[in-house]
Simulated scan of single mutants.
Amino acid sequence: MYNDLRVCFIGDSFVAGVGDPQCLGWVGRLAAQAYATGQPLTTYNLGVRMQTSTEILGRWQAECAPRFPDGCAARLVVSFGVNDTTLIDGRPRVAPKQSAANLAELLAQATARGLAVLVVAPPPVDDAEQNARTAGLDEHFADICAAAAVPYVRVHHPLRDSAVWMREVRAGDGAHPGAAGYQEMAALIGPRWREWLAR
């Protein structure tokens, strides 16, 4: 067991847990799981609402650096993509090829720093056309992570099929669920999370 395990979660509003009245999101629930299984850790939630992969790529190193001092066991969890697929004037905020390139570059930068990385897929929202775009991005992200030997958690399609997730998204702002929805997402990520922490 590490004495000083630190995990930065970098991403968007889903990482931040927007919509959860318990203020845990999936990130807080994963941290609680770790403690429950005897793995203490320090987590830093660096989710920023509305940010795209381009913005996250531009800030992750500066924000993680002071949280990863020499001597700690540093790890990084990454999740983004929904904001990339949001249309502005009829076009995605970030083109799919650029989104893929941003993830590939972030993973390359993290590898150069010797960081273990876990990537979580972008979840669905209450918009079938946007979900189709995000599902395409999910496929690109899966291929990039496989090529980089980085674990990738496929949550997009399971959450689209989740009555709990979709009901809560529709009852909320059309994008973010409440506590039960984030619990569903955390349950999907949990097995890979525990496996990754144990490495």
Rank of each mutant, 00 (worst) to 15 (best):
V94E: 00
A116G: 14
T111W: 02
L87M: 11
A95K: 13
G136S: 06
G172K: 10
P69N: 09
R29P: 06
W26V: 01
C64R: 01
P92Q: 09
T37W: 06
R199A: 13
I10D: 01
T54P: 02
R160I: 14
A179I: 06
P92Y: 05
D126C: 08
R199Y: 07
D89E: 15
Y35R: 14
A73W: 09
Y152W: 08
H176N: 03
Q39R: 13
V155S: 00
P66W: 10
Q98K: 08
A100D: 12
R93A: 12
R29V: 09
Q109L: 11
L159C: 10
T54F: 04
E195I: 10
A175H: 03
N45W: 00
P92K: 02
R91A: 15
P177G: 09
Q98F: 01
V125R: 01
A36N: 08
A31F: 13
M1G: 14
A101E: 15
T134A: 13
A62V: 13
A95I: 09
P151G: 10
T111P: 07
L41K: 05
K97W: 13
D4P: 04
G19W: 02
N102C: 02
M50A: 14
P124V: 11
M166K: 04
Y182A: 05
Q33F: 10
E105V: 14
A116W: 04
G81I: 00
L46G: 00
A163R: 11
A147C: 08
R59N: 07
E195R: 13
N83D: 03
A132W: 08
A147G: 13
A116V: 10
A146S: 09
Q130N: 13
K97L: 15
V169M: 04
R49I: 09
C8M: 07
V7K: 01
R154Q: 14
E63I: 06
Y152H: 09
A121Q: 02
M1A: 14
A171M: 13
L87F: 08
G19R: 00
T42S: 13
C145G: 07
W60D: 08
F14C: 11
C8K: 01
V125G: 11
